[in-house]
């Protein structure tokens, strides 16, 4: 499905300290409200973003990464898209990381399965040694 960017400006935030998490949540909230997401959907996408931002702080090399928050449009609906990138060690087995290991395996608490359930779409690109990119999208109903 072809997705277009809308004319709204994209926001790029460097994530390197806890204080940045607040900004990430605020910007996600702003974008979500702008496209008219209901409170529940807002909460879901902000929480998903919060999980992914915290992943960067916890697992990325130098605890550093970025997120790009932008508004997208497809099939007459608007959506929020957040792209998280880091130069971390990468995820060796994406399939495994997406399996719910939350309660049994603390080291796999990457929050990825949860973030996926909270988003409408999620795409992960990662390879050992070359960093990780996670894209999440939430569409206005």
């Amino acid at each position: 499905m072809a997705t277009e960017l809308t004319d709204a400006e994209a926001v790029v935030i460097t994530i390197s300290a806890e204080a940045d998490m607040i900004l990430v949540r605020q910007m996600l909230r702003a974008a979500a409200q702008r496209i008219g997401l209901g409170l529940v959907d807002q909460t879901k996408i902000i929480t998903a973003g919060s999980e992914l931002a915290r992943n960067i702080l916890t697992y990325a090399t130098g605890s550093r990464g970025t997120v790009r928050i932008e508004e997208v449009r497809a099939r007459g609906r608007k959506g929020v898209r957040a792209t998280f990138t880091d130069e971390g060690p990468g995820i060796p087995d994406i399939e495994q990381a997406l399996t719910d290991g939350f309660s049994t395996n603390r080291s796999l608490g990457l929050g990825l399965p949860g973030a996926r359930r909270l988003s409408d779409e999620m795409t992960i690109t990662s390879a050992p040694g070359s960093g990780t990119t996670v894209v999440i999208v939430k569409w206005a109903r």
Partner: peptide, 14 residues
């Protein structure tokens, strides 16, 4: 809050 409750359940946090 309701939205938080739904999100927590979806997140899968025990």
């Amino acid at each position: 809050q309701p939205a938080v409750a739904i999100t927590l359940v979806e997140l899968g946090v025990p």
